[in-house]
């Protein structure tokens, strides 16, 4: 029963990773770049939600929407200002720029809000449900986190596979010039991708702060790296891959922490990644070609 409850908290953590991983994977799939500033968008989202809840006294849903709105605009702006001018530059130049954007955001947060951590107000605290005659307790917070992740995955999959815009996104991920010849405005598709990824980062930030309620300028770094690992583990560019990679990573992390050692957790997580890539270089659900969404 203990194991089951660890498993469930692993799935909760993994759900958050999966939502963040979607941002990495979609941007990589469409723009073929690693947006290392993605983790810092989460951090900004957390601050926005914090101020909306705590200072402005917004209800949770309004705070979430505010955070989503700010992050979406931030994501589009970052792409326009930092990445778009580098469309035809080498991937190294783009990567260095992304790291620069990441530092910029962290330092901007440091300047604006200081280095002392802010304590995120308690949210999603609706108690537990008890199963097996009280032996297994699952908090509603956990259920809400997992459910949010599932809803996002389903909606995004439907969007990408069924809508006109989704087909255009997949076309861009396969062959941008051919997509242009179809009359697709590739720049708007890339903007939309950043918008979706960053909006999801805001959702992840709120779920993250519900679990770990301290907000600091470096809050996004670790979850960012873990989610990136999850995206690569699942197969970068693949939406189901982000889901699977996120869940696996969350479960491995929690189980390793409990049963092996909390110091070694990160080492174990990254070893799993290396092992998987040794046997399947494209990740668990990655396709052989480089053409993925």
């Amino acid at each position: 029963m203990k194991f089951l409850s660890y498993l469930i908290s692993g799935i909760r953590l993994g759900s958050i990773y999966a939502i963040i991983a979607l941002g990495y994977t979609m941007v990589y799939g469409i723009a073929k770049m690693l947006n290392f500033a993605h983790g810092d968008v989460i951090m900004i989202g957390a601050y926005v939600a914090f101020f909306a809840l705590y200072r402005a006294g917004f209800p949770l849903v309004a705070a979430l929407l505010a955070s989503v709105a700010v992050c979406t605009i931030l994501g589009i702006t970052i792409e326009k200002l930092a990445y778009k001018p580098l469309r035809s530059a080498t991937s190294l130049a783009v990567l260095i720029t992304a790291i620069g954007v990441s530092y910029f955001l962290q330092n901007a947060a440091l300047l604006l809000w200081g280095s002392t951590s802010k304590i995120f107000p308690t949210i999603l605290d609706y108690g537990f449900i008890e199963l097996f005659g009280g032996e297994l307790k699952i908090s509603y917070q956990i259920l809400i986190t997992i459910a949010t992740c599932i809803v996002i995955m389903v909606c995004l999959t439907l969007f990408v596979n069924k809508t006109r815009m989704g087909k255009a996104m997949r076309a861009c991920s396969e062959d941008k010039d051919a997509a242009r010849l179809m009359g697709i405005n590739v720049n708007s598709v890339i903007s939309l991708t950043f918008a979706i990824g960053s909006g999801l980062a805001a959702v992840a930030s709120v779920l993250l702060c519900a679990t770990y309620p301290t907000v600091t300028p470096t809050l996004g770094s670790m979850p960012g790296i873990k989610a990136f690992t999850a995206a690569v583990l699942g197969g970068i560019g693949s939406i189901p891959g982000a889901f699977l990679g996120g869940l696996l990573l969350g479960i491995i992390e929690v189980i390793a922490k409990v049963y092996i050692s909390s110091e070694l957790t990160d080492a174990i997580v990254f070893s799993v990644l290396v092992l998987v890539l040794l046997f399947k270089p494209t990740g668990l659900l990655g396709r052989k070609t480089s053409e993925k969404v």
């Binding site: 087909k167 076309a171 396969e174 062959d175 010039d177 051919a178 010849l181 396709r287 053409e291 993925k292």
Partner: peptide, 9 residues
């Protein structure tokens, strides 16, 4: 040239 169809669709 080279067709450039979207193979995954």
């Amino acid at each position: 040239e080279g067709r450039r169809i979207f193979a995954q669709q």
